[in-house]
Computed example of a mutant assay.
Amino acid sequence: MQYEGVLTKMQTEFGDPIQYYLVFEDSFLNVNQLLDKTMVIDFLGFQCLNCGKKKKIFRQGFCYDCFYSSASVGDWIMKPELSTAHLDIEDRDLVYEKKVQLQPHIVYLALSSEVKVGVTRGTQMPTRWIDQGAIEAISIVEVPNRYLAGITEVALKNHYADKTNWRKMLTNSVEHVDLIAERLKLENLIPDEAKEYFYLDKNDLYTMHYPVLEYPTKVKSLSLDKTPSFQGKLKGIKGQYLMFEDGTVFNVRSSEGYVVRISI
């Protein structure tokens, strides 16, 4: 059985365990069904997720030109504190920026490799946490725009990591932390502009279980640029990673825009 198309991040469905899907233009694949089976991934080329042209991918599934012109990859995406739509100030496309920035955003704590702080749109829970491979997550504040979420995250970065250690996440080397107790410590760290939105007593702790048969003790990352054809037995899926029997891990999201053929 073969599937062919442009890679985009795996779609997920919250459940016990999380369900994962690879979605192509004319087909989709429930990746959970491939556990303990051998799969072959062949790299066939590139296709920019923005312009659709067969151009080498630069970052985030975009070619070089689109990465530096598209409103959907402005600097405020990675640094929410740079958001300016609430001031009617345009970065690349004010209509798009207002649509995305001027909606409820969550600042959260997630336990993926260690406790980390992050920002996501309210509509992206719990998808955002699943994509990071978090085993638990909890909201801190829900604010009306991306800017307020960004300045709250910046204030908390002095106390928590803001990135996931992917190696620790994939080897499941995670020390348990009581996130509800952790949230209780934060009230005085929240910026004044966001204090009224602080969640003190809300019971919204999420727990995620991933379809993993066996965690690797060491991991090595698969790059399709260096290894255009790979074969391995799938042992787990966590975050946006496929985990294979020999310790090879493949980050689907970082390979967005790559055209592949998957054979089972």
Rank of each mutant, 00 (worst) to 15 (best):
Leu184Ile: 04
His176Lys: 14
Ala194Asn: 06
Ser139Phe: 07
Pro126Met: 04
Trp129Arg: 01
Ile41Val: 10
Ile18Ala: 00
Val219Cys: 14
Gln11Ala: 04
Gly150Cys: 12
Ala161Ser: 15
Met208Val: 01
Ser112Pro: 11
Gln11His: 04
His86Ile: 00
Val219Asp: 11
His105Trp: 07
Asp75Lys: 13
Val259Asn: 08
Trp129Val: 00
Asp26Phe: 09
Pro211Asp: 01
Val252Arg: 02
Thr8Arg: 13
Glu114Lys: 15
Gln60Ile: 03
Thr171Met: 09
His86Ser: 04
Asp26Leu: 05
Phe244Glu: 02
Ala194Arg: 02
Gly122Cys: 10
Leu224Phe: 07
Thr38Ile: 06
Gly236Ala: 09
Lys233His: 06
Ile106Val: 14
Gln132Met: 10
Val177His: 13
Tyr160Cys: 05
Leu189Ile: 04
Leu189Met: 13
Glu193Asn: 13
Thr217Lys: 15
Val143Asp: 01
Asn203Leu: 11
Pro228Trp: 05
Asp93Ile: 01
Gly45Asp: 05
Ala181Asp: 13
Glu193Tyr: 11
Lys54Thr: 10
Ser113Val: 03
Phe43Cys: 05
Lys168Tyr: 12
Glu245Phe: 03
Leu44Ala: 00
Leu82Glu: 11
Leu111Ser: 02
Glu256Ile: 01
Asn203Lys: 15
Tyr108Ala: 08
Ala110Val: 08
Ile89Glu: 15
Ser83His: 05
Glu13His: 12
Leu200Glu: 15
Gln101Ser: 11
Asp65Ser: 08
Leu44Cys: 07
Ala181Trp: 07
Leu111Gly: 00
Gln103Ala: 14
Ser113Arg: 03
Thr120Arg: 03
Arg146Thr: 02
Lys157Glu: 15
Gly133Glu: 01
Tyr96Gln: 11
Gly5Trp: 03
Asp225Thr: 07
Gln124Thr: 11
Gln231Lys: 13
Asn50Ser: 08
Thr164Trp: 02
Leu222Thr: 01
